[in-house]
Nucleic acid binder design. Structure first.
Lengths: 207, 207
DNA sequence: GTCTATACAAGGATAGAC
DNA sequence: GTCTATCCTTGTATAGAC
């Protein structure tokens, strides 16, 4: 299906050279289409972007849903974050452009990014509260607010740092690095039970 | 001087509406100049950007230098970060665009952003080591690496989060919020002496 | 419904007159 | 040092072939 191919090629090109440096004509050329034909499927270049961001968002939603079927644990939480991180890497070409997300953020006819991001924040709030209830972390409400702020900023921008400051990052290594930072932060609040969960995750993940 | 005025107007417009949505013709109109005259001072639009980033970088360098004349303390460190944060806000129009910094990062004939950012990382490393030596924080080498990674990412992207997700942020409030997060992170490693320094900073800062 | 060809507007960049 | 005129690229819209 042509539409799917356009999305696939676009993402590939965006990842390679960034959203702004890839033109509609180039996307068309990649698929041996006429430029106008790309426009037939996506009236505006931004529409390609929004669709890709929607794909990304949907993919993550399934990760969150999967997490919520298990009982809360730090190991489970770290596994979730790892999945999300890979997803972000996959869509880095559209994800790291703040200017773009800003536009998308302000567009009314598209996904409501603000409410999505607000919802994610509440999701994290609940996750940490659950981790506390399960005896995995030792944190008061203020600590949890801090952790939410931390994970929100960290989870949104690690990929920007990795992509901007490291031209051809080894994905696996990069993600390991950032997951380690996450582990470190969580271990500052972990109970004995939480620490065990972390050790379990580390053993599976880092060997 | 025309060149200074171009820089000033450009930054104002970039801050208001973002780099991409401001055209050369518009910058010219703002100053009642012809578009070609702007080009006389800055051959490319990117050159305006690079010059502004250089200004920003220079301004920060003076903050760092000032900090190093005092003996290390958490309060002093937080004061430094506050200065930097205001500076970042001032230049947010050029600073938050990752795509731009990426280009700048890769350009060879301009400021060497990579070495600058590498140097800043080493600077933070030294700062935390000094804080440990002064008995303000209790941290092993691994902890310090973590703190450096934290401050690097956090200090680079808080402004993106603030600007993207909050259309017209109250600067003072926003900066207070992010400084509080910093305080929280540092207090996890603070010694008794460090905690006193933090209290002192809080009293001066938050009243 | 799919696709090609083409035209148009906006913005960055350049050359040359004054 | 300043300005006008012009070019080129890129996003976007449309008319029409199959």
């Amino acid at each position: 299906m042509t539409e799917k191919q356009i999305l696939k090629s676009s993402l590939k090109l965006f990842n390679e050279r960034g959203y702004h440096d890839v033109g509609m004509r180039e996307i068309a050329r990649e698929l041996n289409l006429s430029p106008g034909n790309v426009t037939y499927y996506f009236k505006k270049k931004d529409d390609i972007l929004f669709t890709l961001l929607q794909e990304y968002s949907d993919q993550n939603t399934t990760f969150y849903e999967k997490y919520h079927t298990e009982s809360a644990s730090i190991a489970g939480f770290l596994g979730l974050m790892k999945n999300i991180f890979y997803s972000q890497y996959q869509y880095r070409g559209v994800y790291i452009g703040n200017y773009i997300v800003q536009k998308e953020f302000q567009s009314t006819d598209s996904i409501n990014y603000k409410s999505t991001s607000e919802r994610r924040k509440q999701t994290f709030q609940k996750m940490f509260t659950d981790l506390r209830a399960e005896g995995h972390i030792n944190a008061n409400d203020d600590d949890i607010d801090f952790l939410v702020s931390f994970i929100t900023l960290f989870g949104r921008f690690w990929i920007s740092e990795a992509t901007i400051f490291d031209k051809s990052p080894d994905v696996t290594q990069a993600i390991k690095h950032y997951i380690r930072l996450l582990v470190k932060e969580l271990s500052l609040f972990a109970t004995e039970r939480g620490k065990l969960s972390i050790e379990q995750f580390k053993k599976e993940e880092f060997g």
